[in-house]
Design a binder for these strands. Structure first.
Lengths: 109, 109
DNA sequence: TGGACATCTCACCGTGGCATGAGACATTCT
DNA sequence: AGAATGTCTCATGCCACGGTGAGATGTCCA
């Protein structure tokens, strides 16, 4: 069901500007392949930094930086667990991820 | 239902790296507020460049540049229609938008 | 206790992206 | 025909972002 163009169209110069701040922020986070991969990997359960770095072929250094971005945005959170407490496992915040997806769906319909 | 960490965890150094190229590309497009707004605006039907520019408070120049990015990605397409053929209306490619959303859903679950 | 390991943080640098301005082109109006 | 309008493209400048390296912290192992 598509809106047909009026026969004699008048310019609609005051269309409301949509609020896309949440969607744009979520998209900016996922725009980097490493961050997108991290979020995707964590779908299957907690993974520690060195495992992600090995899987992605990136330096743990770099992965840690991207994790900081995702952590600040609330998409992932550290889970200090395991016998070796040097390692830091990360898990997704499913509520935040669902909210991010919802904001993107609001744009892409 | 969350996967519990094993009591004695071993490092999984060969986790498969997910393919997130499509999702990252889609996210990069929506990462800019103007582009995200354009895609959102076009949900309600075709709109011409000057209308979008007015709605967003941006220069038509700038909007046209962002439209070129979206057009190259296949998310929108120009529709030369109307009595004044100077104006260019744009409409969304719903199939491409759905594909983009699907790739993002694949990441955010 | 010393060394290896895992992670985090910060500063630096190079690249890419966005906004801008100017110019070109087609179309409509007077 | 000439002016104004709507859009596109390209070149430029600036800024933010990602990758890297070094250093600090804390933990495990010999």
């Amino acid at each position: 069901m598509r809106t047909e163009l009026p026969v004699l169209e008048d310019l609609r110069m005051n269309l409301p500007a949509p609020d896309v701040t949440d969607a744009a922020a979520a998209a900016a986070l996922l725009a980097d392949p490493i961050r997108a991969s991290i979020v995707r990997i964590l779908r299957d359960g907690p993974v520690c930094v060195c495992e992600m770095a090995a899987s992605l072929g990136a330096r743990e250094n770099n992965v840690s930086n991207h994790l900081a971005r995702l952590r600040d945005a609330g998409l992932v959170r550290p889970v200090r667990a395991g016998s070796d407490t040097r390692r830091v496992y990360y898990e997704r915040d499913e509520v935040a991820c669902a909210a991010a997806l919802a904001s993107l769906r609001e744009v892409l319909a």
